[in-house]
Amino acid sequence: MGKSSKNKPTCSSVFLNGLIKENPTFVLMLGMCPTLAVTSSAINGMGMGLTTTVVLTMSNIIISLLRKVIPDKVRIPAFIVIIASFVTIVGQFLEAFVPSLNASLGIFIPLIVVNCIILGRAEAFASKNGPLLSAFDGIGMGLGFTVALTCIGLVREIIGAHKVFGISFYHLAELIHAPEGVLNWIDRQYPIAIFVMAPGAFFVLAFMVAFINSIKLKENKKNVAADCKVGDHDCANCKEKCEHRFYDENGKDGSVYDKHMSKESEEEGE
């Protein structure tokens, strides 16, 4: 809690941590089910993200207020009940006021209950910090999730349906009074429909994570060069446990793999 440690969390640092540094989708890889399922368009992704943000912020505040009341042994069921109550309330609101969004998100609204981001933040942050910080953590994490979902949705929509936020390219070209030739050219193009179907979700997310990894790799080369003990910065084959390491695989070499086999199966059991 708020003891005067060296780097005491402030509202803005907690907010930015959720939005960028520990982005739930691209960095922590949490809440994958809604990330892939509802992002067939940017609007859906944004709707899901904002709904999750509301639930996350409310449940973070309540859990943080009750953190001294809830006994340690039954904290997980208690958290789940609090989260499920807010999901039900938000679901009823959506059904009443935004029926179209409710219809397109469908069963994924009640499934926010089992979104690992929410329970994860309750356990890791809200149960240890005050209500104000927890609220900012919820907003930051939620907006990080929203931004990620909107990006994925936008890419899938542009490639898979030739639309931007639900407006088709043809319509956009008409709006800016594009010449006849351009309009005809746009009309003849076929979108790659597989990107709005299920497999496209996997591909878009894979390429986005790979893009972020490649940025990290470049930064690592710059920063770690001095203190990397192995020296060739090949983290996948590096046996040292350093903090810059980000691969979860233990190398492609057969001997290394066999050596790690027994250890790995224990780790997976956690």
Binding site: V209, N213, K252, G254, Y257
Partner: peptide
């Protein structure tokens, strides 16, 4: 595990691509 995958794709991205296929 035994394949030579481009560095940025090691770990989660290649698993996602496999799942997509």
């Amino acid at each position: 595990k035994y394949n030579d995958i481009p560095k940025p794709f090691r770990g989660m991205p290649i698993v996602l691509i496999t799942a997509g296929l």
